[in-house]
Design a protein around this nucleic acid. Structure first.
Lengths: 199, 199, 199, 199
DNA sequence: AATGAATGAGTATTCATTCAT
DNA sequence: CATGAATGAATACTCATTCAT
């Protein structure tokens, strides 16, 4: 009656468990870093077992990427904030956007997490392409944001939106990581982004 | 004959060994990251032994910080580039400075290294203050750089030099790490810095 | 309508599945050894699942013995070769027989497989009697072979056929395993058997 | 004062520990087979720790080969038995030799052990050459034995001593393994060897 | 008669650190 | 000052087997 997959009882159970583990990862990784988070830790704080984990993921690396992908899916259409006429200058739009996005960031340690993963996994790992795809998706969204600003005259027009997007991303993450490591003041990020983007 | 320390032969030998190990660390850490680099790795590529290592350093963490400190000492008075009249605009001064500094960077992986250390060591570790001191030294130097630019009208004057310095540092390292992780174009960093600093 | 077993559709299906799994085992075990072959390996290369496997067999050990039994059933009346008047000396009969039997051997790894099973299962396992029964069947057939040779004056008559059969079996398998492990020349086996058997 | 190695205290300690572990392996492996013997088992029945084990051996495979090599070193000049004028026929010489050698065999399970290792390690493993070297040493010694018999007219002269040696080895091990697996009578081995070797 | 998600004890191996000499 | 053998807790991963459906 039920096909090989579809929405059979099995498929439902599978999805539920997998999702629960991934959500758990999203919560646990930022706490101790990639290498610092052990599979043991993870499963102990879940209702599942080691076997369930390895049924759903090939290993720790695979799991981390699944978490990264889930995190990406969680993002809504945040770039629409740039089109909100309520924001009449670059700073207002940037600040509103950062406020909106910060909701997602548990302490802003994800770049450190990815760096940790990158080191642990070997720079040449088979996972690098996936990492770059995820990056590409961020850039696509950031590009929409920049374009929306440009259309309203709130962003430089002398540079391609995609290029500005990449620079804005690097700038933002640099500030995030300096915030985590050295306690850099949160307002600094907004200011740097405004300088970068404003016409 | 010899005091407890002084300039006896022992003291000389001691310093030599310590310096050799630190230099080795400067070379080995970027290759495999903080957690990825083992003490075994280190001593195997030296003429010393585990015993020598633990005589000079309390452990891996202590050693890493010694390497970081040594790396800081290596920097010359790079900020003087900002005063060079040959550079008549912000971009020229920034590009010249980056060129000058890049000589020190083995692949620009040091922020990732520090992030790795930070994760491995626990965010609350006793080493955080040392990390912040080293950061402070960088900021002092960067502030001199920004001040030199401001004096010549090549940098914004509507922000404190120290604040701009912190933002420039975060911006630069963000671009470095995105370069390492995602292959971000090297020219992007100069552009972002110019936008940030220019009057 | 249908009894508990009988020749209902169910019974047919049951036999089919079981036979398919056993045939698969015959093919997969020699590839990776007893411990090296996982149930996962097995079912992945079939159209069945774990559940089907455990419905038909109590476990891996039980399954292995089923495969061994199936393998024994596959043997035809090979010992008749000894009576073929075309072979006029011991060597001719032995070589013809080996040629005939080799068709069954996938690389001659079965003794290693059994040894592997024996080690994994514990020398005292409940499966040892079954192993000995299978051995006994081989000996019965080999005894017929030796008797046929004796009747034609092509084998020693100063020893019981059963005893010679056991020695021949051990000799042959010793050569097989040395062939697999150390690359022992295939012709050696025939020579050793001829020496053992000839009058 | 002490060179890098030589007979310093360190070298002595190292050799002692290594030898103790290898001796232990010689004792433990036959009990549970190669895969069945765990490193944990091993060290628990020693006075050393996991770390000591891995200081001396690269891993389980490396250790097993070290045990095999040690076992080979233990053999004395057993082939001299063949020259003893007290043995006036082939059977007497063979029986005396088997008696002499049996002292070394703890249950005669070493071929099974090697087969187990071979399966576990992958037929293509980097360790196969070492296995073959060990085999080669056995053959050298067996060849001396056969030559001694040939000189005294107690062995076939129509076959090369080296070839006979290889056949005798395979024959003997075949009987050993059938003894272990199926309870084959111990006298059978002597008889088969006599048939193979006698002129 | 079969499905496949989940279990959990078991295993080899790594590595920062210690310590007798 | 330095040696290097030894420690042992920690860790990712495997796999035969179970069981609700």
């Amino acid at each position: 009656m039920t096909g090989k997959d579809g929405d059979s009882k099995f498929a439902t159970r599978r999805k539920t468990t997998r999702a629960a583990l991934v959500r758990l990862g999203l919560e646990r990784f930022p706490a101790k870093g990639y290498s610092g988070t052990t599979i043991e830790d993870l499963i102990r704080s879940s209702d599942y077992t080691r076997g369930a984990f390895y049924f759903h993921f090939r290993g720790k690396e695979d799991f981390f990427l699944a978490v990264l992908e889930y995190r990406a899916e969680l993002r809504d259409e945040w770039w629409l904030v740039a089109s909100d006429p309520a924001h009449t200058d670059t700073r207002a739009a940037v600040v509103a956007t950062l406020t909106h996005l910060n909701a997602l960031e548990d302490g802003g340690a994800w770049l450190m997490l990815i760096a940790d993963f990158f080191q642990a996994t070997g720079r040449d790992s088979a996972y690098v392409p996936t990492l770059r795809t995820l990056y590409g998706n961020w850039i696509v969204e950031l590009t929409r944001f920049v374009e929306a600003l440009q259309e309203r005259g709130l962003a430089r027009a002398d540079a391609a939106a995609g290029q500005l997007a990449a620079q804005a991303f690097a700038t933002a993450e640099g500030h995030t990581i300096h915030h985590a490591l050295y306690g850099l003041d949160a307002a600094a990020m907004a200011d740097s982004l405004v300088q970068l983007l404003k016409p």
